[in-house]
Design a protein around this nucleic acid. Structure first.
Length: 165
DNA sequence: TTAGTGATATCC
DNA sequence: GATATCACTAAA
């Protein structure tokens, strides 16, 4: 299995999101097949956390590709994202589910991912990285969920990618 | 369908 | 300093 390098993540987040489906998320020795992702593409995307600009929380989104963005949602759940694209561009891919753990909150709970992974990098971390074992699959697109605050236009974008069973 | 949870942003 | 919001889950 090969580890995905900076060249993989240093591309538009839509491409990265689509290709991350079917890859392996490796955390503390466990491998899980990524089955669902969503793309959040910059300040122009009203669903992106950083669309209103830079804050201490969204600062990580402006870091270089491969940086991990973990944040707490609803006071309970840690959600795992990986920064993509150009540095200074707030683009990221949300890892929404793996085959073994449906749901972004359950995923991080199952893997023991917490805020301590925030700002680490899948390019050089020993505990958290993405692997490619040559697995290929069909990917289907869908509308993003849980972003009722975004513009109607952005809600209708097919920026959610799922592994076709 | 509803409650629960706590960091963040936004308002005094 | 206070409160409204939120990319979710579990229990019913």
């Amino acid at each position: 299995m090969t580890r995905l390098d900076e060249a993989f993540f240093h591309r538009p987040c839509l491409e990265v999101a689509r290709e991350l489906v079917g890859k392996l998320l490796v955390v503390n020795g466990s491998c899980l097949r990524i089955s669902e992702t969503e793309a959040y593409c910059g300040e122009g995307d009203t669903a992106c956390h950083a669309h209103k600009g830079r804050t201490p929380r969204t600062e990580v989104l402006y870091a270089k590709a491969g940086t991990v963005y973990v944040y707490l949602c609803y006071g309970i759940h840690w959600l795992l994202n990986i920064v993509t694209g150009e540095q200074e561009q707030p683009e990221a891919v949300l890892i929404r589910a793996c085959l073994e753990a449906p749901g972004p909150g359950r995923l991080t709970k199952a893997l023991g991912i917490t805020g301590k992974y925030n700002r680490s990098s899948v390019l050089d971390s020993q505990d958290l990285w993405i692997g490619d074992d040559g697995f290929r699959c069909e990917v289907e697109t869908d509308k993003r969920v849980g972003i009722g605050y975004a513009s109607q236009e952005d809600q209708n974008r097919l920026w959610r990618f799922k592994l076709k069973p």
